[in-house]
Amino acid sequence: ATNIVSKVKWYNSTKNFGFIEQDNGGKDVFVHKSAVDAAGLHSLEEGQDVIFDLEEKQGKAYAVNLRIK
């Protein structure tokens, strides 16, 4: 899926990962520091509106092509 609009559930800049809620009630989506860095960001804030693409690797959903709404 591409261009999903949602909100950051939480992000831990010390552990370099977090999760984004899915508005459709699906499972929370993992977001890694590499996606945050690629977006030119230093961190994410809880409740922040984001747009991302969903990529599945080894049966897990990852946020990629992250951008701020």
Rank of each mutant, 00 (worst) to 15 (best):
K9N: 02
V29I: 12
V36W: 03
K69A: 13
D49S: 13
S43D: 11
Y62M: 08
T2I: 13
D23P: 15
D37W: 15
F52I: 06
F17A: 01
H32C: 07
I4K: 09
Q58T: 08
Q22V: 12
W10H: 03
K27L: 10
E21F: 15
K69L: 15
F17I: 03
I20W: 00
E55V: 14
F30H: 02
I68Y: 08
N16Y: 09
F52P: 00
H42T: 13
F52W: 09
K57Q: 10
S34H: 10
A63F: 02
V36K: 02
L44C: 03
D53T: 06
K27I: 09
F52L: 03
D49H: 14
N65D: 03
A63Q: 02
F19I: 04
Y11C: 04
D23G: 15
V31T: 03
R67F: 06
G25R: 09
F30V: 01
H32T: 05
V64H: 05
E56W: 15
G18H: 01
D49P: 13
H32M: 05
D28V: 05
G18T: 02
W10L: 03
V8F: 02
F19G: 01
V5E: 11
Q58H: 14
S13H: 12
N65W: 02
E45A: 12
K7V: 08
E55W: 14
L44G: 00
D53R: 04
F52G: 01
D53V: 04
Q58V: 08
Q48C: 09
S34L: 11
D49I: 15
E21V: 15
V8D: 00
D37N: 14
F19V: 04
I51N: 03
S34G: 08
V31H: 02
I4C: 10
L66F: 00
V5I: 12
L44M: 05
E46A: 15
N65H: 09
G26E: 10
D53W: 05
V5Y: 12
Y11R: 00
S13W: 10
V50G: 01
G18L: 03
Q48P: 01
E46N: 13
G18D: 00
N24H: 12
N65E: 03
E56D: 08
S6K: 04
N12D: 11
A1L: 13
K60Y: 11
D37G: 08
G18Q: 01
Y11L: 00
T2D: 07
S6Y: 07
I20E: 01
A61K: 14
K7M: 05
I20N: 00
R67A: 06
L54C: 08
R67I: 08
L66T: 00
V29M: 04
G25P: 09
I4T: 06
Y11D: 02
A35I: 07
T14Q: 13
E46F: 11
R67D: 04
D53E: 05
K15H: 08
A61G: 08
G26F: 10
D53C: 05
A38M: 09
L66I: 13
A35F: 04
Y62E: 06
D37I: 15
L54A: 03
I20H: 01
I4W: 06
G59F: 05
S13F: 10
A63M: 01
G25S: 09
I51G: 04
V29C: 05
N24K: 11
L66R: 00
V36F: 05
V8M: 03
A39V: 06
A38E: 09
L54M: 11
G25A: 09
F30R: 02
A63L: 04
G26A: 11
I51F: 07
V64F: 06
Q48Y: 06
S34P: 02
W10P: 00
F19R: 02
V50M: 05
A1E: 10
G40I: 04
N65S: 04
Y62Q: 11
T2N: 10
D37C: 14
D28H: 06
N16M: 11
S6D: 02
V50S: 01
E46G: 13
A38Y: 08
S43L: 11
E45N: 12
Q22H: 14
V50W: 01
V29F: 10
E21T: 14
F30K: 02
L66P: 01
E46M: 14
N12E: 05
K7G: 02
R67M: 05
L44F: 05
G26W: 09
V8A: 02
E45S: 13
K60F: 11
K57V: 11
G18W: 03
V5L: 11
A35D: 05
N24G: 12
D37R: 14
A39L: 08
A39M: 06
Y62A: 06
Q22A: 15
D49T: 15
Q58I: 07
T2L: 13
V64K: 08
V36H: 01
H32F: 05
D28P: 07
V29N: 03
L44Y: 00
V64G: 04
G18R: 01
S34C: 11
K15T: 07
D53Y: 04
T14D: 12
W10M: 04
K27R: 12
S13N: 11
